[in-house]
Amino acid sequence: MTGPAGQTPRTRPRASHLDLAQRILELVREKGMQAGAHLPEQVLASACKVSRTPVRAALDLLVEQGLAVHEASSGYRLAPGFAPGSALTGPLPDAAEAELARRILRDRAARRLDETVTVAELIRRYGAPRSVVGKAVSRLAEDGLLTRAPGQSWVFAPLPDAPESQADSFEFRLLLEPEALGAPGFRLDPDRAAALRRAMVAFLAEPDDRLDPRGFQALDTEFHGLIARGAANRFVADALGQHLRLRELPGATARANVVRLRQAMQEHLGILDQMEAGRLDVAADLLRVHLRLSRSQRPQAANRGAPPLFGLTFRGGGDG
């Protein structure tokens, strides 16, 4: 049993996640849920009156404790050995620098942190020990998201969350992904492909009001990762893999409505059909179409009597 994204276990969780994990266990007992029962994130988030992010962290804690399991295709479930008396026990995971790094990135994406920060500022803001902040900063620096500036400060790399950088991202992927797929030597991982197909079909079976945009994003990353990993040219594989990690950052992907999410998932399945059938040239063509359709063409602004403003040709934050 592993965490949903193969996360390394933490040794000390956030107190709020612990509390929430306890509340989820209480709910499970109140409802008389049995081993193997589905633990729907949205339902738990509503019942506990919190967003899904902390619910997911609390469920991960239950996974780490062996009380729940997570599968990409079906989400969280009570572990097969779960009993009504099961409780959180043993050494609890560590509130590692990974969690702090995540919060730092979240707050930068939300423009709560400026482009330039110091370790002292981060210590004050997060109330974390210098050693933990130092490790979190090092981790972000290793990922190329923070670079040391003169003095004691660190500068964030531009996050790919503006319409212009999202447009650049699509251009980049249009150049490389279909080529990676169509070039000789592409290798499809058949087991991953089969598991992904099951997860995508399960996603499409959900009604509109339960179609989780983050679930879509996880499957989208997995689908395009399948292509990146299969590339015969290792430089292409590396470049696509690195770009995919960038797209997982907060705010890096444009939100889409539920209709487009379904369409995009159907397009993924159509491409996968051709990949599994060995028609990689057709798959590459369909992938080009998919990427072009996924690129937002919506105007950024429109008003009665005035021409619409295209986001992709406009450079925001101009001279005002």
Binding site: V50, S51, R103, A110, D209, R210
Partner: peptide
């Protein structure tokens, strides 16, 4: 019209 669900962001402060 109906849209898909919105996943509330994680606020550092306040519930």
């Amino acid at each position: 019209r109906r849209e898909g669900p919105y996943d509330l962001p994680d606020f550092p402060k306040g519930e």
